[in-house]
């Protein structure tokens, strides 16, 4: 029985001549849905604040129409912060999804492996020290790469698979966290204050240059993920199977690891270590995915959604006091993490 349809079940086939590209139909549906939610959250975030705007006036203001005061509030005051939240959330979550797939473990997010902490420690060292002339953002990137290299080196022959990588990472993260505290305790209070936003995860101290850099980086990583979805599908298989298919597991892992580290480093350089977005984002994406494949784009969308909502809550719940976004995500994410740990026994691991 030969089935003559030209696309496998559940896929949409785009083709041009002899070229063809498959898109999972479920992915289109869930990404449209998540995008819809994200747009609503963005409109709410741009509209709500000391001056509350109607959704319609927000949309007008974004496109440079309507009341000039509204345009100023939306474009000059709120849009930068919204983009910072959107980009960092997407970056953290995409990095988390890649790292989880790489390590075959749902707990293996950059935050838990200590990459966030190390990026933070490097950024803080640049703020508190007079001898380091490099910008905190650049230091954050270097920190992320250093932590990954350390965790990878310490995990020995097992590589990114298995618990050694995670445990080595937790150790690296703990040391980085302790060093951060030590640095903060040794400097004058106003210097420590300047460094503080780097340690909690906040969108109020973002640098607009770094937001743009993150935006570009995120776009490049998303495009890479779209092109690599086909080969990334092999990541859950054992090395022998992947080599048997004629692909290089080492190269595949290296690419995924680099993408994950760059995304985390860039995101930390904008917002500091934002707790648990990398854990919850992919989890939401998987909830919508029909089977547990690697929903990279959905993870990015879900991460952006979480950050935009968390920041909105942080700004408004105790207004005029502002709760840093990292604290909001941790308050919501902590119980969720425990729930995953408890539930994981009954369902299969990644």
């Amino acid at each position: 029985m030969i089935n003559k349809t030209l696309s496998p079940d559940g896929y949409l086939r785009l083709s041009l001549g002899s070229y063809s590209y498959l898109i999972e139909k479920n992915a289109i549906a869930r990404n449209l849905f998540l995008s819809g939610l994200l747009i609503l959250a963005c409109i709410a975030s741009l509209g709500i604040g000391t001056l509350t705007l109607t959704p319609w006036s927000v949309i007008q203001a974004v496109f440079g129409l309507g009341d000039s005061m509204n345009q100023f509030v939306v474009q000059e005051l709120r849009l930068q912060r919204l983009l910072a939240g959107l980009y960092t959330g997407a970056a953290f979550s995409l990095a988390g999804c890649l790292m989880q797939t790489l390590a075959r473990n749902r707990l293996a997010t950059p935050g838990i492996i200590g990459i966030d902490n190390a990026a933070m420690a490097f950024a803080v060292s640049s703020v508190v020290s007079t001898t380091i002339s490099m910008a905190p953002s650049a230091m954050a990137l270097i920190g992320a790469a250093t932590a990954t290299a350390l965790a990878f080196g310490l995990s020995g022959s097992s590589g990114t698979r298995g618990y050694r990588f995670i445990i080595a990472g937790i150790g690296v993260g703990a040391i980085a966290g302790a060093i951060t505290q030590l640095m903060l305790s040794q400097v004058a209070i106003d210097v420590a204050n300047a460094a503080y936003p780097w340690t909690v995860g906040s969108l109020s101290a973002r640098s607009s240059l770094m937001v743009s850099v993150l935006g570009v980086g995120l776009l490049i990583c998303l495009i890479s993920c779209l092109l690599l979805t086909h080969v990334f599908g092999l990541l859950p298989f054992s090395d022998a199977v992947v080599i048997g298919f004629g692909s290089s597991m080492k190269r595949l892992r290296l690419i995924a690891l680099i993408l994950s580290v760059v995304l985390t480093g860039l995101a930390v350089s904008v917002a500091g270590p934002v707790g648990l977005v990398a854990l919850i984002g992919p989890e939401i994406a998987r909830f919508f995915a029909r089977y547990r494949g690697i929903p990279l784009i959905s993870s990015a969308l879900a991460g952006g959604l979480i950050m935009v909502i968390a920041d909105l809550l942080g700004r408004t719940v105790l207004s005029p006091i502002e709760i840093p976004v990292g604290i909001v995500t941790s308050i919501v994410g902590g119980p969720y993490l425990i729930w995953i740990l408890v539930r994981q026994r009954s369902t299969h691991s990644l």
Partner: peptide, 12 residues
């Protein structure tokens, strides 16, 4: 090659 260690993606 069909290796001994045949881990597969979940839910496939």
């Amino acid at each position: 090659l069909l290796p001994q260690d045949t881990i597969s993606p979940d839910g496939i």
